[in-house]
Every structure is written in structure tokens, then in C-alpha cells.
Amino acid sequence: MKYSVFSVMAHDKTPEELIPMLKEVGYHAVEWRFKETPEEVRQEPTSFWRNNYCTIDPDISDQEIEEIKKMSEQYGIKTLSITPYLQDNIKDTEKVLAVAQKFNASFIRLGVPKYDRNEDFNQLFKNAKEYLKQAEKLCKQYGVKGLIETHHNTIVASASAAIRLLDGLDPQHVGVLYDPGNMVHEGYENHLLGLQLLGDYVAHVHMKNAAWVIDDSTKSDEVNWHVNWESIEKGIVNWDQVIKDLSTVGYDGYIGIEDFSQVDDTKNTLIHNFNWLQKWTENI
């Protein structure tokens, strides 16, 4: 297995700062966060999901793409994915695919509907299925695979939900970004079962961890819970077992670090995760 990093976790580093850092630590590839940053947000402190320095702007020029590609090639870091925050908009999807093709990226992340109880699941599913049929054709055209992510608060929180949505589509062109850390929030199924169920659709894996904790704001006899992000070795996901399960199904792709624990600074977090990855993959 090979190791990548989703740049969302390196919010205080620019792409030019992250690339040599990945090489120094030992990673093989990068997944670029792809999102516009409004001018008013740029005045804020850096953060994962708002003023994130390690983000590719959708308006990036061809010259800027070539500069990042040249630097990545210099350090031997593959651009694995261009990772946007798409909805089911096929025009926006094609724009991302065009940029991904210029980067020689393997993947983009496709859009799936959020689920918040305000819209009927069945209609959301129908719309998403139609979108994915169109996206599949574009992914084939551009030579970049489109992935849906197992993610809480969406209609594909679990492996079972993901395989139902992708049923009938070609796994050469669309697949699943399997994320056990997200499935702590919702969507948990035995990981080996889920990987066997998904089969050839498993294209990439994200590694992070989380745990349920009691909400301190509870002021009654009821107990409320929420999820906190944790270090990869301290959350609910047993990553040693997940990596063994990945090996069991013959997965030999990338494991992408996406650590939101904020236990340490960016570089030390990259080192910490790399060391744990090495330990666990040595056991398979």
C-alpha cells in the first residue's frame, strides 16, 4: 500500500510548503483540496474548512498548474486527487475533471446529496443516480475516475448505501472513497463486510479517527453525545484491523491521511500518522 495526504489537514501550509514536507516524511502522493476562498474568509485565522492555505482555487491558471506539477515531479509526489465539494451539478463536475486531467490526477470526488431530514431520501437518491450516470460518461471521457465518499450526513453514509447508489455503473470510471472515520458518526458496518460488498468499487481509502463523547452541555437527566476527532490510534476505528481487512480483499491502492485531531502541528501530525501507518502495514 502507498500513502497519501489530503491537503485539507495542512491548512496552515501552502502547496509549495507541503510538497517538500511530504517527501521528507515519506509520503507518496497528495490529494488537493479544491475550493474557492472568499476574500472575507482570507482575513480569518487558518482552518480546515474555511481559510485553508493548502487549497487549489477553481480559477487556477494553466501556468499555476504547471508550476505545481513541476514541483511535485521534482519531489516525486504524485497528484492523486483533485477533491472538491461538489453538489449534483454536472457542469461543475466537468470543470473539476478538466483541472484534474491537467494535473494527471487519478481521481476526483463526486457530489452526493446531504441528508438532513428536510427532503425525502427517495427523491434525493433518484436525483443522485441520474447525476452519477452523467458523471460516469464524463469520467470516461476525461480519463479520471469519480469517487463518492462514505460520509455522515449524506445519503451514502455506509458501504451498503454506496453500493446501492453505484449499482449498474462501471467501476472503471466511478468508485468509492472508503472512509471508516466518517462512519464513526454514522454508517458503521463491519469493515471487511463492507469492503467485500463494495468489491471493485473500492478505489481509495481515507484514514482518520473519531470517538463518541458525552456532551458536557447536557443539563437534564438525559445524556447527549457528540463525535470528536481523535488521533488515528485513539479513536473508535481499529485501524490495525481495517488495514488487515484491506489486505484480505486485495486492496493495494493508497491510504490517504486526513487527520483533524489538532493534537500537534501539521508536520508532527504527518510524521505521527506516517509512523502508525508503517507499523500497521508491516503486520499484514
Rank of each mutant, 00 (worst) to 15 (best):
E149Q: 15
Y142D: 12
N51D: 04
R109T: 07
D170C: 08
V96F: 01
D167V: 01
V96P: 07
V99P: 03
Y75C: 02
S81Y: 05
A161R: 03
I82S: 01
R50C: 01
S160V: 07
N52W: 03
S72Q: 09
M71R: 12
A135R: 06
K126T: 14
G143N: 09
K129D: 05
N89A: 04
G146S: 10
G175Q: 07
H151R: 12
K91H: 13
Y142R: 07
Q63N: 15
I56S: 05
Q87P: 00
Y53C: 09
G143T: 05
D167R: 12
N122R: 15
I56T: 10
H151E: 13
V174E: 07
I108W: 01
L138K: 07
R117S: 15
W49Q: 00
I68E: 09
N153H: 15
A98H: 08
H151C: 08
R117D: 15
P171F: 06
C139Q: 08
K137S: 11
A105C: 05
Y85G: 00
F48G: 02
L165D: 07
Y142L: 10
E64H: 14
Y115V: 04
L124I: 12
K114Q: 14
L177E: 10
K102I: 03
L169F: 03
L138M: 08
L124A: 13
R164Y: 03
Y131K: 05
L147Y: 08
K145R: 15
C54Y: 04
D170Y: 04
R164S: 14
V96D: 04
M71E: 12
